[in-house]
Computed example of a mutant assay.
Amino acid sequence: MDKKRSLQLLEKLSNANGVSGFEDEVVHLFSEAVKDLGEVTEDPMRNVYVRRRGNTGHRPVVQLDAHSDEVGFMVQAIKPNGTLRFVTIGSWAPVNIPAHKVRVRNRDGVYLPAIITSIPPHFMTAEQKKAVPKISDMAIDVGATSAEEVKNHLKIDIGAPVVPDVRFEYLDHRDVMLGKAFDNRIGTACLADTLRELDGQDLDVDIVASLSAQEEVGERGAQVTVKKIQPDLAIVFEGPPADDTFSPEYMIQTGMKRGPMLRDRDTSIIVNPRFQKYVLDRAGAKGIKAQHAVRTGGGNDGAVINLYSGAPTIVLGIPVRYAHTPYSYVAFEDYVSALKLTVDVLKSLNAEVIGRF
């Protein structure tokens, strides 16, 4: 792999604006990154399909999936004082929202800087200082003083998407990336790099990649992509929340710099145990770091793909510290391990192997 190329793609994807339903920037970046690797198409939902160059149409079909959207917000109403009432897009903890910088898209498509409001401590009561803030009590401040200014001068409408305003950084001395939206721009980049690593390779399976929209609001895009692709097997790239900064050692199952996490179970899926074991065994045989996890929450596109197609499915996640907040860390070595493991598995697959799952 070309580390410089990968980091450049990761930077562009992390910085891109793309809450659920507004993934256009991410779709463009991904499509440009893979345009020379196969037939690239897009549907009206902004799902992207890449049919790998070299597919024959007469072999088992492997769907590689990642989702393009990120968690964020949407403008619900404009208050008389010029602040914006909003709702969340995707899952947020209210305590992580106030006092952060965001970007609000206006009707010209320009993203304007703004701040999520917070009451200065000087004006807080003792009870307010202890209480968890309610989202319904928050607002977005674009620096205006009236609703008329917001509507007519700034051109902000109800329904405008809002994203955290965070810029990507690569911390070379720690080989760690810092940025927003690694759930799931890290998976998006790994999907593109997997196709590039396989370019020109002889395989015994056909590969169709899907960059699915609207995962954070109910795996909606994957419900469309799986029906079009009709896979015989699936690998889903994710950016799962890391647990190594708050869990006891024996409970750490998604630790940074411990390799990709293969999820045994969450509330949406129990992965195919035979396929899961096959991948973990190959990781061990190749000396690639990997970990697996049993989760009591969460959900992902793998559940939809498995449910609609019945195809053996695994979820391969690159650990993201502080997912679903404005700022996240990802170790580049985990990204590399995920890429190496996926490429190795895909090279090993054929109809007979898949039939054993």
Rank of each mutant, 00 (worst) to 15 (best):
G259N: 14
H122A: 10
N96Q: 03
F246W: 12
V163C: 15
D172W: 00
M251C: 06
Q253V: 03
L262A: 01
A303E: 06
A285F: 04
E149N: 05
V102H: 09
F73D: 08
I288D: 11
P241V: 10
T145P: 02
S136K: 14
T296E: 15
D281W: 10
D108H: 14
T145H: 11
R265G: 05
P94C: 06
S118W: 01
Q128H: 01
V176R: 02
R5W: 06
G57R: 04
T313K: 09
S118D: 00
V104F: 03
P133G: 13
V27Y: 07
A126I: 13
P326E: 12
R356F: 00
P231V: 00
P161F: 09
A144C: 08
E352Q: 15
V294K: 14
H58F: 09
F86Q: 03
P113C: 14
P260S: 02
Y278Q: 12
I89M: 03
M251H: 08
L280T: 11
A285T: 03
V271N: 08
N17A: 11
C190G: 02
M45R: 12
A192E: 06
A209P: 05
A139S: 15
V71I: 11
V71Y: 04
A311Y: 07
N306C: 08
L29P: 09
T254N: 12
K228I: 00
S31C: 11
P231C: 01
G18C: 09
R321Y: 09
P319Y: 05
V87G: 04
N17S: 08
D266T: 10
R321W: 08
S268P: 06
